[in-house]
Amino acid sequence: MNMRSARAGTGLDSDPALADVVVIVRVFNEATVVGSVIRELRDAGFAVIAVDDASTDASAAEIDAAGAFRVSHPANLGAGGALQTGLEAALTFTGAEFIGCFDADGQHQVKDLMGMVEVIRQGYDVVIGSRFLEGGDTQIPWLRRWLLKAATSLMNRRGETRLTDAHNGLRIIKRSVAREIRLTYSGMAYASQLERALTGSDYRVTEFPVTILYTEYSQSKGQPLLNSVNILAEVAAHRISQWSRR
């Protein structure tokens, strides 16, 4: 099980205690922070796959220096495209049983991910971070909070699994679940597609309280609120387009 010696230096080696986990980090022009985020994950013992979504800054060099395994898109594919690539890379290049997703902008905390690893090992298929559960300690601007609640209740109308936080980037899923995911939406609308995939089947899904750090950096990089219009429009257009194919 000692992956560290076998694949040392590839970024896919991990602490023996975490040999069953690989973490995907999507990176698009995050050169100032991605190095420290990846280093923190690596120091904790995680194997890390960083999907460089055709960054135009020094992100790729930062990823390599920080010691993650880098997969670089030749063209920008957006958040959903990068996540799909990360999942496929995790399935192809590692044998990890659990695949985690972690944001590159420093808003997630490694200790939350560690806690989620413990939870998913108890026999869950999907563990999703939530900002709204007891135990989390996130200060969310009120308009964002309201939009997130609205999106969550819209989404929850389908699956049996009730989620309290629709669009949280911190997740960990089982390998067998990852194999079933096909994200086709570009941009941020992928999140609703992903949540449907995760909660629609008979998976054992649970949430884990996490703390999101709304730093000045992540605020400036994060989703502009108006982007929710784009997301809704994309979901609607996509559903009409797919209508006749079903």
Binding site: R70, V71, H73, P74, A75, L77, T85, A89, T92, F93
Partner: peptide, 10 residues
């Protein structure tokens, strides 16, 4: 793009 990225990574 994904196919290209994957083969390069491999």
């Amino acid at each position: 793009s994904r196919a290209l990225a994957m083969s390069d990574a491999a």
